[in-house]
Design a protein around this nucleic acid. Structure first.
Lengths: 204, 204
DNA sequence: GTCTATACGCAGATAGAC
DNA sequence: GTCTATCTGCGTATAGAC
């Protein structure tokens, strides 16, 4: 936020446009107008529209990965603290990066990307890590048995959808889904719901 | 499927294009080429591209609503049969209408639609009905306590994401996420996961 | 009902002045 | 580093022949 170089302003404005209108729905004019410069000036910083988009996507995944990797409690705390930590970091990242959420979701939807880039391949290491964690804990009897891969996908969908489908939720609910009260209720629900499903029925 | 009038062919092809490439990413040429006619011939059946899109959206929601309303076991069966029925109808509708899933999801993502149409408003009656059902059952002690609105949203996200983000899942998993084995596992997981979270800890 | 021809605007990208 | 001017192609939509 501190650095307000033109290039950064372009990236920030483009991120908003791509999130709101998608790649095809965004014109270089839209971005330039938001920054306050003319269209050809954009291409002084990036060789093409594709390049802007790719850059934003790479920044986004880099940031996402960093937040996950730098997760505080990745030590050997108890398994529930781990789950809460995973949920909290993801929730917090989605909340503070709503544009990235929508861009990633659009990318997941599009049958064939404009680039060589593949979202599934990029996220696979994180997915597999989460799957292995749940399998280990379920094997040890600390979590109730579920299909680990589907469990992670369910969590992903439950978290991401709340932020990506914001516009629809606004029509569905009486309250702004991004109000602090609604967000707290959402996080509490997801945490408790997951806990309800994973908690063993008999505690040793 | 039986009626193969040109208009139906247009609708079917447009649905595929809009799902794969979005509204802005789809040109009338794309649709016309898929049907096997020229671009101006499309506009003999629809006054504009917007009209085609709006028509598809209306068809989709009409169909979705009908499938939900015609749900077989909406009688007074036990509450678990009700939950299974809701999940099964939704799952089956998403599975057999993958294009609609992606079109609806794109609509939910887009900050402002091209039309006066609002997805949240359209789905709100169904949402409220589901919320009231869960609240009633939780009040009666047949389900464990959860935030009913968030519960429905979680189910929605868990079901829809699996079908909308198919491309990403293909890169994430080793298996085709739409193979019959994977689909069965997915449905079983969602059903069991929801049941685990809702089942009261002490059975009267 | 489908076509060719065309109008018209906006897209992305480049050249070159300042 | 930003601009004006321009090139080129594709977009939606319309007019009118067959």
């Amino acid at each position: 936020m501190a650095d307000s170089s033109t290039k950064d302003l372009i990236v920030r404005e483009a991120r908003i446009c791509f999130a709101n209108q998608g790649f095809d729905g965004t014109s270089l004019n839209d971005i330039a107008a938001g920054v306050g410069i003319r269209r050809p000036s954009l291409l002084h910083y990036f060789p093409s529209k594709d390049a802007i988009y790719q850059h934003i996507l790479e920044l986004a995944l880099e940031e996402w990965g960093r937040q996950i990797d730098e997760r505080p409690t990745s030590g050997d705390g108890d398994c529930w603290a781990q789950v809460d930590s995973i949920l909290e970091v993801s929730f917090e990242f989605f909340r503070t990066n709503p544009e990235i959420v929508r861009i990633v979701r659009r990318e997941a939807l599009t049958e064939k990307g404009h680039l060589d880039f593949d979202l599934g391949t990029a996220l696979r290491p994180y997915f597999l890590r989460a799957v292995r964690f749940f399998e280990r804990e379920m094997e040890a009897g600390r979590f109730r048995r579920h299909d680990a891969e589907n469990l992670v996908l369910t969590g992903y969908g439950a978290l991401l959808t709340y932020f990506s489908d914001h516009r629809m939720l606004t029509g569905l609910l009486d309250e702004d889904p991004f109000s602090s009260r609604a967000l707290e209720a959402r996080f509490a629900h997801v945490r408790d719901f997951v806990r309800s499903a994973l908690e063993p029925l008999v505690t040793e």
